[in-house]
Simulated scan of single mutants.
Amino acid sequence: MTQALTIHQNNIHLFFQMLEEHLGIALDHSKEYLVASRLAVIARSHNFKDHHALIQHLLVNPLGILHHQSFHAMTTNETMFFRDKYPFETLRTTIIPALIAKRRETKTLEIWCAAASTGQEPYSLAILLRENFPELYFWKIQLIATDISEPALTQARTGIYSETEVKRGLSEEQIKRHFKLLPSGQYEISSELKQMIRFESLNLVKDWPVMPKFDLILIRNVLIYFNAATKAKIFRKLRAQLADDGGCLLLGSSESILYDQSFKVQQEDRVSYYCKDLHKEMQR
């Protein structure tokens, strides 16, 4: 192995350490191919010879905008409307009706979509609420959607998507009902649905801002990128952020927290979700 190759691999390892420290994302040598493919554009736009030169610059300079651009380039923003469909069916048939029954007196719902990417998940939830629960139109619903990527949040806030993006998960009827076709050929979601959601920047592995206790938290398909210690820390914070009288947590289909006994596991068809167990919480 040449000295240059050894230096490059060591630098990539150090870059992965920086990525995990600041974003919580844990990558190993098997993901080195992602570095070249995802950092190449940034390297070219800032006049670096290649991604190796960019990484060398990041390692020897204080944390700055270029670091954050590079970190965010390594994140995965794969998403779609009504992704995986079964969790949304469980929300429609079981979780949301139970929350409505629980909050009928106060007529309020607090919902958080974490790692919301470009907005398809929170907008899917807003569509689900509008199409299936007309009584909620007169409720006070706070739907907060967060992500660490500013470019993703920018698209989410504009609510503008390509034809391919809207046709991934939405029916023709839903597109007609909730979107406006723009001269560019893109689709813009209705202002009513935009107004239902507040998009904010949040880094899951850093300090969280003061937020309300949530009746429902969706944090799907992101914890798989974190190591065990980081996951455990996030789960503790999520538990504290849930409403004490049975707030519910919905994860991705390949994620679970069966080891945490302070959550009560609920099974609905193909979907598992977790509710805060107040009795066990009081015993802690």
Rank of each mutant, 00 (worst) to 15 (best):
E192Q: 12
L193I: 03
K194A: 05
K194E: 06
K194Y: 08
K194W: 07
K194F: 06
Q195F: 05
Q195A: 14
I197Q: 10
I197N: 10
I197G: 12
I197P: 12
R198N: 14
R198F: 10
F199H: 13
F199A: 12
E200G: 08
E200K: 14
S201M: 14
S201D: 12
L202V: 09
L202A: 07
L202I: 12
N203W: 09
L204R: 02
L204Y: 03
L204V: 08
L204P: 03
V205Y: 03
V205H: 05
K206N: 14
D207V: 10
W208L: 01
W208P: 01
W208I: 03
W208N: 05
P209F: 02
P209T: 08
P209A: 06
V210T: 13
V210G: 00
M211S: 05
M211H: 08
P212K: 05
K213T: 04
K213W: 00
K213V: 00
K213F: 03
K213Q: 09
K213C: 01
F214T: 04
F214S: 00
F214R: 01
F214Q: 01
F214A: 00
F214E: 01
D215T: 09
D215E: 11
D215L: 03
D215F: 07
L216W: 04
L216I: 11
I217T: 03
L218R: 01
I219C: 14
I219K: 00
I219W: 00
I219S: 07
R220V: 01
R220W: 00
N221F: 08
V222D: 02
V222K: 01
V222L: 06
V222E: 03
V222R: 00
V222M: 09
L223T: 15
L223A: 13
L223K: 07
L223Q: 09
Y225D: 09
Y225R: 04
Y225W: 11
Y225G: 09
Y225E: 07
Y225M: 07
F226T: 03
F226P: 05
F226H: 06
F226C: 01
F226Q: 03
F226E: 06
N227M: 08
N227W: 12
N227P: 07
A228G: 06
A228K: 15
A228L: 14
A228I: 13
A228S: 15
A229C: 02
A229L: 11
A229D: 13
A229P: 07
T230Y: 03
T230W: 04
T230K: 01
K231V: 06
K231N: 12
K231Y: 03
A232M: 10
K233Q: 14
K233E: 13
I234F: 07
I234N: 04
F235S: 05
F235Y: 15
F235R: 06
R236I: 10
R236A: 13
R236D: 14
K237D: 14
K237V: 10
L238R: 05
L238I: 15
R239T: 10
A240C: 11
A240Y: 13
A240H: 13
Q241K: 11
Q241C: 11
Q241G: 08
Q241Y: 01
L242R: 00
L242T: 01
A243C: 08
A243M: 04
A243R: 06
D244Q: 14
D244E: 15
D245R: 05
G246R: 02
G246C: 04
G247A: 02
G247W: 00
G247H: 04
